[in-house]
Simulated assay, not measured.
Amino acid sequence: MTTEPAHDPRPTFVRALDQAGKQVAAVRPDELTGRTPCADYDVRALLGHVVSVLHKLARVGTGGDARGVPDVIDGVADDGWASAFARARGEVERVWADDGQLDRMVELPWATLPGRDVLEAYTHEFTVHSWDLAYATRRLAELDPELAGQALEAFSKFAPPEARSEQGGPFSPVVPVPDDADVYTRLAAYLGRRP
């Protein structure tokens, strides 16, 4: 009997980072104060959060504590976000290049998971934040629907609507959308955003 090799989430993770990187690079300085679907973030703060997530992912990949990284990186020049993202991404890819990382248990602020599950979770986070940026800057046509479909399937398993409340948390109650809405609109609405 042969066993299937364990799934390597890195190729899909790279696609999600490619998409997020394109969205980050497309943001113009005059768009930084625009509103986003994330209630707590304007475009600048959302960029700072996306870069922060990369720093957190690099830190946990080396056994560090992500809680030592602020949720939003600031102090980046208006035209420096693409470079900040690229530098942080390079560090993440270096840290996670070793195949052994995928089976190592990684401690996150919200769970302890095998590395492969961590990368899958962050693939979905970058997919959602790509939509947030695209929505805020009106660049929705540039998004990969396959990534959204995978994220929607994953979130439906670990963030069911009945586990949410009006009092907050990472996901608001599901927002109704038409049955024929595109997959990114359905994903955003499932997470409580109002597309």
Rank of each mutant, 00 (worst) to 15 (best):
P70I: 02
A66R: 05
A84L: 14
G63Y: 12
D74H: 09
V51R: 05
R67V: 01
G48K: 04
R44N: 04
D74C: 04
L57V: 10
A58K: 02
D71C: 01
A77D: 15
L57R: 06
F85A: 06
G61M: 03
V60P: 03
D42A: 10
A77M: 06
A58E: 00
D74Y: 00
G80Q: 11
G61A: 01
A66P: 01
V51H: 09
D78N: 15
D65A: 08
V43A: 07
G64A: 12
D79L: 08
H49Y: 13
L47S: 12
A77E: 14
R59W: 03
V76E: 07
V69C: 04
L54I: 01
W81K: 03
A86N: 07
H49C: 09
D78L: 12
G61D: 01
K56Y: 00
A58S: 14
V43D: 09
A84Y: 10
R44G: 04
L46R: 06
A77C: 11
G61C: 00
A82N: 13
L47M: 08
V53M: 14
A86D: 15
G64N: 08
A77L: 08
G68N: 02
D74N: 07
V50D: 04
L46E: 12
V51D: 03
H55L: 10
G63E: 14
G80T: 10
D42G: 11
G64P: 10
A82W: 07
R44A: 15
A84K: 03
A86K: 02
L57S: 04
D78G: 15
D71N: 13
L47W: 05
I73N: 02
V53C: 02
G48N: 04
V72G: 10
A77Q: 01
R59S: 13
V51T: 13
D78I: 09
L47G: 08
P70M: 10
V50P: 00
A84M: 12
V69S: 07
G61S: 02
H49N: 09
G63D: 03
D42N: 15
A86E: 15
A58I: 01
H49I: 02
V53I: 08
V50Q: 03
L57D: 03
W81V: 04
V69R: 01
D42L: 02
